[in-house]
Design a protein around this nucleic acid. Sequence first.
DNA 1: TTGTAAGCGTTATCAC
DNA 2: GTGATAACGCTTACAA
Lengths: 333, 333
Amino acid sequence: MLRAMKQKKTTPTMKDVAREAGVSLGTVSKVMNGIPVGESYRARVEQAAQRLGYLVNNYARGLKTNRTFCVALLLPSLRHPFFAALADEVVACLTRRGYRCILMITNFDPEAEHKCFRMVQQNKADGLIALTYSSDLVVDESLPIVTFDRHFGPAIPCVSSDNYCGGQMAAEKLLELGCRRLLMLHIGADIPGEAHKRSAGFGDYCRRRGADYTPILLQEGDTEQPFYRYLEEHIRDGSADFDGIFCSSDDVLLRIQAFLEQHGVSVPGDVQLIGYDGIPDYATGRYVCSTIVQPVDRMAETAVNILLDGGHAAAGASICLPVKYAWGGTTRS
Amino acid sequence: MLRAMKQKKTTPTMKDVAREAGVSLGTVSKVMNGIPVGESYRARVEQAAQRLGYLVNNYARGLKTNRTFCVALLLPSLRHPFFAALADEVVACLTRRGYRCILMITNFDPEAEHKCFRMVQQNKADGLIALTYSSDLVVDESLPIVTFDRHFGPAIPCVSSDNYCGGQMAAEKLLELGCRRLLMLHIGADIPGEAHKRSAGFGDYCRRRGADYTPILLQEGDTEQPFYRYLEEHIRDGSADFDGIFCSSDDVLLRIQAFLEQHGVSVPGDVQLIGYDGIPDYATGRYVCSTIVQPVDRMAETAVNILLDGGHAAAGASICLPVKYAWGGTTRS
DNA sequence: TTGTAAGCGTTATCAC
DNA sequence: GTGATAACGCTTACAA
C-alpha cells in the first residue's frame, strides 16, 4: 500500500462528497439532514460519504442554524457524590437526546460562575443547566436556563426534590421510631433556594404534632462548630438530651455520627439520625445512612426535558420531585 | 421603560461593533484577538463592544481557524469517586488554560465509546482525553489523544500512576507491618493497560523477598465471587490462613473488609488490608482505607499538558506519576 | 496602520 | 426533486 505523498490532512467536506457522488452540494445537505430526496441520489450520497469517511461539521452547521446541540452544565464540584451523580445523569439524558454536554466546575466561586455564563453565550450553547450558589445570575434572557434547587425569578424554571415534604417525612419517621426530643442541624439555610425548605418541613411537622424540637441553622460556608458545641453541651456521660436528629445532608450526618460515637453516644441505639441526599456508597451500593433520597435521575431528566422541550413555555414552572425515605443503619428498623 | 416593539432578538456581531465604533470589520477582529492596533481605535472598539454586549462567536471563529478551544473527556462513569475526581481535575486544568470540556460518559459500553469518538471528530474538538475499556480505539490520526491507564499503540501517550511501584509499596508495607501470608485480589487484570502492573509489582516484590503470597486474578466484568469463595475456604472459626491482603482498588477492599468482619475476622487486627486509588471520603476528608494513593491532580494536569502542549511530539510518551502509601485504618499504624 | 474581500462548511432560498 | 447561490460571523491575506 503505497502512499508516497502525504495526503493533505484535510477532512472531507460536503463539497467532496458532492463531487464523489456526482451530485450537487444542496443534495448532499438534504441527505445529511434526512430531507426527502430521490432514492438513487440518497444511496449514492450515502455511499460516497461512507467512502470518504465524511462527517458533518457541527461548527459550520451551528453557524448557520444557531443550534449547537450542546448544553452547558454548571456545578460547584464533582467531589461530592451528589453533584457527581447529577452530572452523570444529566450527561446520560443529554446523550440520549443527541446532545453534548459542556461541563463547568465553579468550586463555589461566584466569579467563576460569571465567567462560565459568559462562556456559555459565547459558545452558543443551546441552554444552561446550573446548580449555583451565587445570588445574582446575570445572563442573556434569550438563553434557556434551568436551575437545580435555586430560584432566580419567575422566568427561570427550577427543578428540585420535594424538600419540604422530605423534611416532613424525616420528622414523621423519627417520631414514629420513638424519638421525642428532636434536633435539626441545617447548614446552608440562608440560601434563598429550595434546600432550606427541608428544615421548614421538619419544623412545621414537629409543631403540628406538638413534638419537642430544636433547630440549629447555619449559613452556607460557616463552620459546623456550633453543631458540635451544642452536642457537647447536651451530652452527659454518654447520654444525650436528644434522641433524634435530622441533618440537612448525608455528609453532615456522617460527621455528626462520628462525633456522637466518639462521645460515647451510640447510633442508632441512643440517638437516631436521618440525613438528606441518599447517594449510595460506591463500594457496597448501599445507603451510607438513613436518609431522604433525592430522585437524582428524575431530577436530571426533568431538567433536560424542560430545557429542551419546554422552551420558554415552562418558564416559572418550579418542579418538586418526590423523595423517599430509605433506611441506612442510623435509625432502628 | 417602554419597549413597545419586541427587539429583534439577534445577538450583536462584529459588523455591529464595527458600525457602532465607526471602524472596519477587520479592525474589530484585530482588537478582539489582541493584535496591535491604533490606541484610539482599540479604545473605541472596546467601548462599542462593551455597549453592545458583544462576545465573539466561537462557532464562527472555530469554523475559520479550526481551533475550538474545546477538549473532550471520555469516562466510563461519574459514579465512582476516582472517575469523578479525575473529571473534576481535568475540567479545572482545562478551564485554567482557557479550554472548555465536553464530557462524555460511556457506562463501560464499547459501542457508546465508538459513538463518542465519532462525535468528537464531528464536533471538531481540539483533542480527546480518554479512560476507556474498549480494546480498539479507532479514531482519526490527526486528532490528538491522551489516555489514562491504557495503551493504544506507540502513537498515543498514556498517563497513569506508577502502578508497578504502587504494587511494590503495598507488598513492602504489608511485610513491614508483620504480615507473612499475603493475598492479592485483583479484578480487571486482563486489560492490556497499566493497572495490571499493580499485581505485577506486588508479586515481584514478594518473590524477591521470598514472601508467601497468593494471587487471585479476575477479569474485568467478572463477579467477585471467586474472592469470597477463597476467603471462605481459608477462614476457620474466625481465624484466617492469611494476614495481609492487597486489593486492586479501594472499593474492592471495602467489600472484602465487610466480608471478613462478617465472618469474624477483624481488620486490621487479624488481617491487614491495602487498597489502591486513595480518594478521600467526601464527608470526613479521610481515606476510607489504607491505600496506595494515585496523584489524581497531577495525572489530570499531565494529561492536559501533553494534549495541549506536547502536540504530537510527546507521542509514545508513557508517563507514570509517583504514588504514595497512606494509612486509612485497615492496617496497623 | 486600516480597510476590503475572499473564504471556512453549512443551510436555505430560489429558479429550474 | 435538484442544483446554483447567498448568507451565517469570523479570520486573514492583501490592497490602500
